[in-house]
Simulated scan of single mutants.
Amino acid sequence: MSGFLFVTWDGGGNVPPATALARELVRRGHTVRFLGHASQEQALTAAGFTFVRPRHARRFDSTRDYTPLRMLGVFADAGMGRDLLDALAAEPADLVVVDSFMFGAMDAARRAGVRYAVLEHMYAAAYRTGILGGPMGLNLRLRRLAPQRALDGAALRLLMTLADVDPAPAAANLLQVGPLAAWSPRVAGDPTIVVGLSTFGYPGMTRVLQRLVDATEGLPARVLVSTGPNVDPADLTARPGVEVHRWLAHADTLPGASALVTHGGHGSTMAGLAHDVPVLVVPLDGKADHVVVGRSIESAGAGRTVPRRGSTGDFRAALSALLEQPSYRAAAARLGTAIRATDAVGDGASALEALTDGAAAPGRPAARP
């Protein structure tokens, strides 16, 4: 059996794909450790994983530390790279699996000749433009982290997105396995709108959520709102027919949902589509993948996109269309069928295993530094 070291960061939706792969590897008899931000230790150890405490990495907590400049520093953090090498010196691993945003860790692994895979948990289209092609990519290059060389040097780039909405670019070491999206059979019931924005600490979410709640007035549907850890449910003014909770699990709400409102995070959007639910995307960050995700869903006919500064009327018109026009449900069901036909966790775990057992793994061998 093999040993794996996952390098992650406290970003919310980036963590479930990593933990799902890790659980599958453990189920197959392998050992898995996680290196991440200190704010992640409690959740990861509670999930049964060994956590390597960082000593050199920048401190970061997604519930309170979000600023564009802060994010630039986190993704380029050489301290996480030092912690990676220290973790391997203390206990070697057969393969390191690095989150696709952690370029400081990737650079350290590449320069040290460590065999590593990159876990890509967002649209490849957004990754190429928003990360590598935008201010983030420029910042990484100015810090001499050579992001493209880091990606080219990976033994495998595991892309966990759906080809129907995010066609993979040509790359010899890239394997697209589909999205992580658990689903349950549909449940019949009254029309229901599920509203949930990010667990990440984006500014202004309370105001956006309030306008969304107000927009549902007069619509023929019950409304379930999940505020997440950064918005106090008491700060929202609800009305009869609207339930506001701190947390609602997708498994409890999406099987009976008629429409989902999300910020366009990859995980929540795919979860909605996996349940054949049309999606209203309200992007919260133009530098993340939210806008690209929203456009792709709109192009597929499976949802609508309204800017975060949209009015109550804009939100109401979009939600009304999702509830009343059968074409949105039909398009969402087509994508849902495609998602359910994938086995992202099983195929992804097999690809990672193949890199450690001498079998012919997808992609090409890691380049030497």
Rank of each mutant, 00 (worst) to 15 (best):
M80S: 04
A318T: 04
V7F: 03
T63I: 01
Q176D: 03
A181G: 10
V291S: 11
A87M: 09
D190C: 10
P326V: 04
R295T: 04
V208Y: 02
R329M: 14
L119P: 03
E243D: 06
G264L: 12
L156V: 05
V15L: 15
A170L: 00
H266I: 06
F34N: 02
V231Q: 12
L44I: 14
A168L: 05
A18N: 06
N139K: 11
S320K: 15
L25F: 03
L25N: 00
M106E: 07
A181H: 05
S299F: 07
L85M: 06
Q40W: 10
V15D: 07
R59W: 04
A22M: 14
F60C: 05
G336P: 07
R246K: 07
D166P: 00
S320C: 10
R110I: 15
L219C: 03
M106T: 02
A22S: 15
V225D: 14
T269I: 08
V32E: 12
G265R: 14
R64Q: 07
P220S: 15
G346D: 03
V231E: 06
A321N: 12
F34Q: 06
L284Y: 11
F6C: 14
L236W: 10
M102N: 07
T262N: 12
A126P: 06
G358P: 00
T269D: 01
R368V: 13
T31H: 14
V26D: 03
R239G: 04
L159I: 01
A117P: 02
A20L: 13
F75V: 06
S299R: 04
A57L: 05
F101V: 05
M102E: 10
P326I: 05
L335P: 05
A150Q: 09
L156F: 01
M270G: 04
V291R: 09
G48F: 00
S320I: 05
A257L: 01
G294P: 07
A76P: 08
R308C: 15
R186F: 14
V281L: 12
